[in-house]
């Protein structure tokens, strides 16, 4: 059985440092204004302490990717191992994938005039290495898992603050953040 690579985001370990997102820029040599991974603070309606719990998200490498179905130039490819790769060189910058992805994963490179997104560093995975963001996480809050190997019942697929798109079946899994006991005067 082939692999189904996925990001596992342990929000309980995540400190919102943005190291993952910057490591991505650094390894993938992104344009100065471009991000492939973003760290979103949870609203106080979801986690009671402002800017203290986060969703670190890049591409969710969906089972049925909206980008792939939206792209008129067939620039998206779903690999056997689950990774959704965008081929920039055939992209004509129609931005239909950007309109279509509920997670905001593809972004428009305004200088090169094409879309681009997280490739899960498949070039690194193929070389037996971890994606740059995963390697960069100082607390092991962001890890790479094989959905065929893990017990999925232990993880959340649609935490609050994350669009629940069952038809797309995004691969990212989550562990929810806990709250400290608070002592105040």
């Amino acid at each position: 059985m082939s692999k189904r690579y996925a990001f596992l985001v342990d929000m309980d370990r995540c400190i919102g440092c943005r190291g993952c997102a910057m490591a991505c820029k650094n390894f993938n040599q992104l344009a100065p204004d471009m991000v492939w991974r973003q760290v979103y603070p949870l609203d106080e309606a979801i986690y009671p302490h402002r800017e203290r719990a986060f969703l670190s998200l890049a591409c969710n490498h969906c089972d049925r990717p909206a980008c792939l179905e939206a792209c008129p130039t067939a620039s998206y490819e779903k690999r056997e191992d689950g990774i959704v790769v965008h081929h920039q060189e055939t992209c004509i910058g129609c931005t239909n994938c950007i309109r279509s992805c509920p997670y905001g994963a593809p972004r428009f490179n305004s200088q090169e005039k094409h879309a681009e997104k997280c490739s899960m560093c498949y070039e690194r995975i193929d070389a037996g290495l971890l994606p740059a963001c995963v390697q960069a996480c100082p607390t092991q809050a962001l890890t790479l898992v094989d959905l065929n190997e893990i017990d999925e019942s232990k993880y959340e697929q649609y935490p609050a603050g994350y669009p629940a798109m069952k038809r797309l079946n995004p691969s990212t899994r989550f562990i929810l953040p806990k709250k400290p006991r608070i002592v105040r005067g």
Binding site: C17, R18, G19, A21, M22, A23, K25, N26, F27, Q29, P32, A132, Q135, A136, C137, P138
Partner: peptide, 24 residues
């Protein structure tokens, strides 16, 4: 690009958000 030295058990392959800006 840069990465944290894996040889250090303290750095353990990971820089921080600041460290990854060094090439820039």
């Amino acid at each position: 690009f840069v990465e944290g030295a894996p040889e250090s058990t303290f750095t353990k392959g990971a820089l921080c958000v600041k460290g990854y800006t060094y090439p820039r």
